[in-house]
Design a protein around this nucleic acid. Sequence first.
RNA 1: GGCCCCGUGGUGUAGCGGUCUAACAUGCCACCCUGUCACGGUGGAGAUCGAGGGUUCGAAUCCCUUCGGGGUCGCCA
Length: 606
Amino acid sequence: MFKTDYCGDLRVSDEGREVTLAGWVNRRRDQGGLIFIDLRDSRGLVQVVIPSEEAQAHAVASEARGEYVVRITGKVQRRRAGTENDKLPTGEIEVRATAAEIMNSAKTPPFYINEDADVDEQLRLKYRYLDLRRERMTRNMVIRHQVVKYIRDFLTDRNFIEVETPVLANPSPEGARDYLVPSRNYPGNFYALPQSPQQFKQLLMVAGFERYFQIARCYRDEDLRADRQPEFTQLDLEMSFVEQDDILQLMEDLYTGIGAAVRPDLSIPAPFPRLTYAESMRRFGTDKPDLRFGMELFDLTNAVRGTEFIVFKSAVDSGGAIEGICVTGGAAFSRKEIDALTEQAKQLGAKGLVTIAYNAAPEAATEDDIKSPVLKHLGLDMIRSIGKLADAKAGDLVLIVAGVGGVPVKEPGSVTRVKPALDALRRGLAEKLELADPNTLLFAFLVDFPLFEWNADEERWDATHHVFTSPKPEDIDLLNGDDLGSVRSNHYDITCNGWEIGSGSIRIHTRELQQRIFDVLKFSDEDTKMMFNHMLEAFQYGAPPHGGIAPGIDRTVALYAQESDIREVIAFPKTKSAQDLMTGAPLPVEQRALDDVWIQLAPKKD
RNA sequence: GGCCCCGUGGUGUAGCGGUCUAACAUGCCACCCUGUCACGGUGGAGAUCGAGGGUUCGAAUCCCUUCGGGGUCGCCA
């Protein structure tokens, strides 16, 4: 070893020891005859003092610059009275150098490593090895390690075993686009990188392992977001002989445990609230509600029935919906702010946004107390009753979105755009008004999801979660009917602060029921045979009842690290266009490599 | 794929039709300084304003195209 100690570990208890340190120059303060160097390594910072009396060390210190790799030998001493630095864990002591050596020089870095300044993300990704040297990123990677370590210990203590499953897996017909890997041995055939180890983990249950988990990499070739990368990590787990409650309780214990171990300063209310999918959609317009604040949706469809106001009337008459939210204190918004909200609503697919500002309590409001473009159209009485229904107080702003029925679902102004628009407005306003406590992780469970959802593009029913999710026993008879949308499933999500953290379900474990689901989904026999035959086969050999869940590790770590973007907790993430700016991947390959795997490139499209 | 935002010395920003031969902070270089800790002081180098085209007497500033990054909707069981 080139060093006897880590910079960040030294304390008063080391006083008098001779130590050799090696690390990076975080900052140099040259006072002429006396030079200070803040030396940084993976464990933190310590101040090294180099007086001119130590001629050799002083000469070296004069040459050193930021990010140079240096080795320093010296004695740990208490700092002079009055010069302690309480901002540093090592601030009571310093190392007085007796010898120094430059082990490597460094170019001036392309951005600051020793301060937490905003840097263009492109630059950070290109020089990710320097970005990771910054305190924030180092801290995030440490938190990530601690979270994963906690998970492994936690599950190990509960008799889970970790099993690896293939990365070269089988393509699947539904769900996200697969990343494909061409086969050299079988021309025209492909592996797919797994979107999740779903089938393997169920087969491990058939194998009798009873409790399995894996920190598993998953791949989906879809467009990216702040919380979506093309490759991401899941805590994949599966248990036999369990019911929904067993899984949810395990998750609650795990997530509160991680908090206590890694971020005891954060507030994690337990027990985690449970909402049905239907209730969450009704109150928040989304299946991943941020429960740290109110501003819940309310339904005006019946209340405004009979009005002649054309926007509401056409929504009511067409079987559409009219819903709104109430923004506490929003009556104070400027014209510009209101316009911005309206514009936002339109971009979210609303036909428009009806705004009503109440400068007095609704029941006592006169026309002078109301600021609304639709005051004349709706009349004071209607405005008052809307205000009461919204539970608006003096100073509040009510925002209303109307959507008509009977039009294609994704069309702007359709009834299906009402809830998504209000959900986005609600989230946007909460951020603007800082309604959500950043130091609270408010987890929740969402249950009773619908088993199927209508795919309007393909004009067929798709599995909401995946095809192995079991229907609720009391809804199995509905499989015979036409309204497959009302079949509820044993599918649950864990959410936190408006993020979906993980999905899971109690699975189907009999061949008969699984085949029936395939039939309902109108899978052809050939498809079923090729893609899922091994599952149907396996279920015939004593498959136990089983279920599981798969929380995203990246999102989990981001929550505990209080980062809003999972790229901040991934060592080497990709850009929104799935590129690695450091290595340049994806890259072209030689013709021979293509020939090996029987691939011929199509001409580029213009 | 749609919509929106961003792209100016190494870095972060300002400038938004002529006063820009581009400003500020920080970093960088040189010199001075023995108790600093975002040390301080003096001096200096450094960008033709993502790229291409156009409008104009004149463009970093306006328009078009294009590239790159980001956000969002679609998409993502």
